[in-house]
Amino acid sequence: MTEQPVLAVEGLRKTFGDHAAVDDVSFTVPPGGGLAIVGESGSGKTTTARMLVGLERPSAGRVVVDGADRTAPPRGRTARLARARAIQMVFQDPYLSLDPRVTVADAVEEPLRLHFDLDSATRRARRDELLDRVGLGEREAAALPRRLSGGQRQRVALARALAVEPKVLVLDEATSALDVSIQAQIVELLRDLRASLGVAFVFVSHDLSLVRHVADDLLVLRRGRTVETGRAAAVLDGPRHPYTRLLLDSVPHPGWDPARIAADRRALD
């Protein structure tokens, strides 16, 4: 456990006006690790994810990826490319995260062209390899996004993010817009990719029931602050904080008692 973390976040904070969306959040992710950041709407989980990839500038705190400080959004081509090589992101909505005018093949080739100096034959081979890795074939490669289902689009988004060969991949609710039967396919794929590629994953999700199956560590956010953190299995089996317990109880299950949960929620405020 003395390994240098691939992602280290320290005292991260983001304020909009006088409202702190993210307030003093810290965590580390080891190389190839899996961290789940879980919270409800307004918990600051998405803002945190956006700060990790440089889409939002933190008000305070530090983001260190692969040993380099990546706190501020990059300036200049070199910094931009270096940052992109370190950390990538898959967005929630598969229907909005691909340019409707770009074919699947081109969507995957674009980052290859930007980041690697490959001749076109090698690049195409690498593209096909990536698409194959996420379970897409020639037919899908030639298609525009609108011909694909939500699950297929999310596979394209994954292939595109992995094309850069990042050290860390942030998945912002990457499965929540999908049907259950398809979501499970993508979860299987994610487990497989993480195991085989050694990329560290940061899952941002509202769904606690998924956490155990995709992540090793868990961070629970509420109103911008860390409520509880630890090994995923340990937190899920023995939550310490009443809010974590409430979240766990809220997931429908046999013997579910919504009235009691409602009472617990009121007690917490």
Partner: peptide, 26 residues
């Protein structure tokens, strides 16, 4: 603000390229 534009930013493209190649045509 659409995720496809943001994903190009995360990929490391310059604002020029994103605007000319993706945003404007759309």
């Amino acid at each position: 603000t659409r995720p496809y534009v943001q994903s190009y930013r995360v990929q490391g493209w310059s604002g020029w390229t994103i605007c000319l190649r993706h945003l404007v045509p759309n």
